[in-house]
Amino acid sequence: MKLSKSKVNQALDMLAKEATVLVPMIVDGVSKFAPWGTEGKLALDIVNTLLPPKDALFPQTEKMYKYKVSAETAEVKEITDSDKQVVFGLRSCDMHSIDCMDAVFLTKGYVDNFYSRKRENLTTIAINCTKSNPTCFCDSMGVDPNNAASADMQLIDIGDAYVVEARTEKGKAVEALWQPLLEAGEGTATPISCELKLDMAGLPAKLRGMFESDIWDDGYQACIGCGTCTYICPTCYCFDINAENHGQEGVQFRCWDSCMFSEYTRMAGGHNPRPSKKERLRNRFMHKLAYFDERYNKNLCAGCGRCVVNCPVNIDITRFIEKVKEVPVNG
C-alpha cells in the first residue's frame, strides 16, 4: 500500500486525533520534532533535524515524583502520566538512537519505569533517506539510511508517494487507521549511501586498549566544555536528578546532564575523577565508540553528524575515528 504525499497532512491529522504526533518541523528557525498542529513548517525534506526526537522518550526535564515534607514527615507521590505519542518521519539514525536508549533504560537488571511508560505509548514511523548530508556517516556506524529495521512502520519515499510497511502491531494499527487514505501500489527507492566513510572495523576493541594513549593529549584543548554535542546528540542519555523546592513541597525531576560539564562527576568533598577537559572528552569518545559497544554491543554513535555540524569549535568525532585508525596497533 502507498500513501500519496499529497495526503500526508490528512494522515497526520488522523493520527493527531488519537495521539500527540511529533513531526520534523522548522519552528522559528530551528528544526526539531514538534507536535503536529502547532506553529511551524513541516520539513520532511531535510535530512536531519537540529534537535533529535529523543525528547519524546527522554524529556530534557522530566518530573518523577511530588513530595511534601515537614520538619519530621515526608510524603512521596510518583508521577505516572504518559500520553500516546507518535514520532513521524524519523530517520534511521534517530531510530538507532532509540534502540540505544531502549538498551540502556530497559535492560541490564533494572527497567526505568519513566522511560518504559513512554516507550510503550510511542509509535515510530520512519522514512528512508533519499539524500545524505556531507556530515552524515550512519552507514559506517552500522545504520542503514534506507531502512530503520526496528521502527513500527517504515515509509519508503518513491517520489510522489510513500510505500507503507507496517512492521509491528502498533504499525499495523496506524495502517488500519490510514486505510481510507491508502492506495494500492508498490515501489522501491534508489538506495543511497553516505559520502563520508569511516572504517569502524575493530575500532571499539582497539580503543579499549588506548585509554592511556597519547592520542588524547591533542585536540581536547579546543573543547570549550559546553553541552552542545551532548544535548543535540540523539543517543546521549545521561541525566541528573534534582529537586525543585517550593517551601515544604516540591517535585523531584530528572534532567539531561552532560559529561562535558565539570561538575558532572565531582563528588561531595571535591574529588573529581575527570578533572579536566581531556578526561571528559576522552570519556565521551570512549563511551560513544568503545564502552557502549562493550556493554550493549552497539555503537552509541548513530552517525547523524549533528555534533560535527554544531560544535562551536568544530571538534569532529569522524576525524578522531580516522586518527585512531592511523595509530599503529600496540603503539
Binding site: V104, F105, K108, G109, Y110, D112, Y237, C238, F239, D240, I241, R254, D257, C259, Y264, T265, N283, H287, Y291
Partner: peptide, 8 residues
C-alpha cells in the same frame, strides 16, 4: 541503577 551515566 546503571542508567544516568556518571559513575562509569
Amino acid at each position: 541503577i546503571g542508567k544516568c551515566g556518571r559513575c562509569n
